[in-house]
Amino acid sequence: MGGLSANSRMSLAVHVLTWLAYDRRGTDKEVATSQRIASSVNTNPVIIRRCLGQLKDAGLVTVTHGRGGGWNLARAAQDITLLDVYRSLPDEPVFGMHASTPDAECYVGAGIQSALSDVYQEATEALCRSLRETTLADVLRMTLASQAVTAGTP
């Protein structure tokens, strides 16, 4: 999903999957196309197709071609964690290091990357533990609850 930051790629992927979880409920369903999903995300269907391709490669979605086809979750929303989604994205660190190498003659520059590397590794592990505890079903439930509050529904 070129051009998007790692953070927005994660948000995009979760949005797409949550939309599918919501849309695929019930029996009378329209085809889940990239165009319909793009409408919810308010972006170009090409970006959605790119995202769906990565999610398909990761085994999180399936596609059926032809009349009546479309995109579906590969397994139930309660069986897909946000960690699964995170791992479906290109392997980029959550926190990046400096674009240029710090001055090795400087007291701070000489050791900052090593110090930050340890802190960032610990933070990434904590993030993964948290993402493992939240499913798409949880996100959908929170999303719908948020809508009810926003609309003033009890």
Rank of each mutant, 00 (worst) to 15 (best):
V14H: 04
Q113K: 02
A148V: 15
A13Y: 03
I112K: 08
S130L: 14
M142D: 15
A21G: 05
D103V: 02
A126M: 09
L140V: 14
G68Q: 00
A110P: 11
M10G: 13
A151H: 11
T124N: 00
I48G: 06
G70C: 04
Q35D: 14
A38K: 08
R36E: 14
E125M: 01
L89N: 01
Y120G: 11
A74D: 05
R129D: 15
T18I: 03
I80M: 02
L116G: 10
M1P: 14
D118W: 02
S88F: 02
L17P: 06
S88E: 01
R50D: 09
G68F: 01
A32Q: 07
S34T: 15
H65N: 10
T143H: 06
I48Q: 06
R50G: 04
S5G: 13
A115G: 07
A115N: 06
L116P: 13
W19A: 12
G70I: 10
E122V: 10
E122K: 04
V16F: 00
G66N: 07
D91Y: 02
A137W: 13
P93S: 01
R87C: 05
S8E: 13
S40F: 12
E92I: 01
S34P: 14
A21V: 01
D103R: 01
T134N: 09
K29W: 04
A148F: 10
D84R: 03
P45R: 02
T150A: 08
L52A: 03
T150Q: 13
T134G: 02
V108C: 02
S100P: 10
G96Q: 12
A148S: 12
V63W: 04
L116Q: 11
S88M: 03
P154I: 06
L20Y: 01
S39P: 11
V31G: 03
K56G: 12
D138A: 00
G26D: 06
D138H: 09
T18A: 00
Q35V: 12
Q121K: 05
K56V: 13
Q121A: 07
S146K: 09
G69F: 04
V16P: 12
D84P: 04
V61W: 00
S5L: 10
S40C: 13
P90A: 01
S100A: 06
T18E: 08
S40Q: 15
T81C: 02
P102R: 01
G53A: 03
T43K: 06
D23A: 10
A76G: 09
V41D: 05
R49K: 11
G68S: 04
V41H: 03
W71P: 15
A151M: 12
E133F: 08
V139F: 01
